[in-house]
């Protein structure tokens, strides 16, 4: 058998690239394929993968906040029990007004994932039906998994610290006090925090 081990994976990429425009795919390694597509095509790609290519198992759905690039990245992870290949379908959503179509008519468990992403990132899934609260209760603030939600700040506002640790010292400062060293401001960012 001289054909390469990645035959199935390459076939999937080829299929998807030929069927959908503006879709780019890559075989990452054995049993892992990644494709990137525009968000409008997501429901079609997912249906196609499920019904035509055999990716009937919906493994996972995740979201990554690329705040510096001003978009969210949604990742749908599918598995084909027949070919034994994991397919990751990625798409980008604008951070200003994030919304995308709901896909829980294709897999009903996607409902839970979408509810959580809606709660944690504030992404609107058009047509999603489900209770607003999933994990958080009576939460009024910003969707907490976003990168601009500062947990340290939140803790200071919401909780009070137990007293007793005010005498904590800093090793570098202690040494600097004794030696009289003056660390310039532009160097301070390299000091240990």
């Amino acid at each position: 058998m001289t054909d390469n081990k990645l035959e199935k994976e390459q076939k999937v990429v080829k299929h998807l690239e030929e069927t959908f425009q503006n879709l780019t795919g890559k075989v990452v390694r054995e049993r892992r394929v990644t494709v990137a597509v525009e968000k409008e095509l997501i429901p079609s790609v997912l249906s196609y993968a499920k019904n035509q290519l055999g990716y009937i198992h919906f493994s996972h759905m995740s979201c990554v906040d690329w705040i510096e690039d001003e978009h969210f990245e949604l990742v749908y992870i599918l598995w084909s029990p027949e070919d034994k290949v994991q397919l990751l379908i990625k798409t980008l959503i604008n951070r200003e007004n994030p919304e995308i179509d709901n896909v829980d008519m294709i897999w009903r468990q996607a409902n839970t994932y979408e509810r959580e992403i809606r709660e944690m990132y504030g992404i609107q899934f058009k047509g999603l039906v489900g209770r607003e609260e999933f994990i958080l209760e009576d939460w009024e603030g910003m969707p907490p998994m976003r990168r601009d939600f500062d947990t340290a700040e939140y803790i200071k506002e919401a909780y009070f610290g137990r007293p007793g640790r005010e005498d904590a010292g800093n090793v570098r400062e202690e040494i600097v006090k004794r030696s009289g060293e003056e660390i310039p401001d532009f160097a301070k960012k390299y000091s240990r925090d």
Binding site: E133, I135, L136, E137, P144, F149, T151
Partner: peptide, 14 residues
């Protein structure tokens, strides 16, 4: 659910 949310994924970002 929600009784056991410790926010681990957010914790890991820091």
């Amino acid at each position: 659910v929600g009784y056991l949310h410790r926010g681990f994924e957010k914790l890991m970002e820091r």
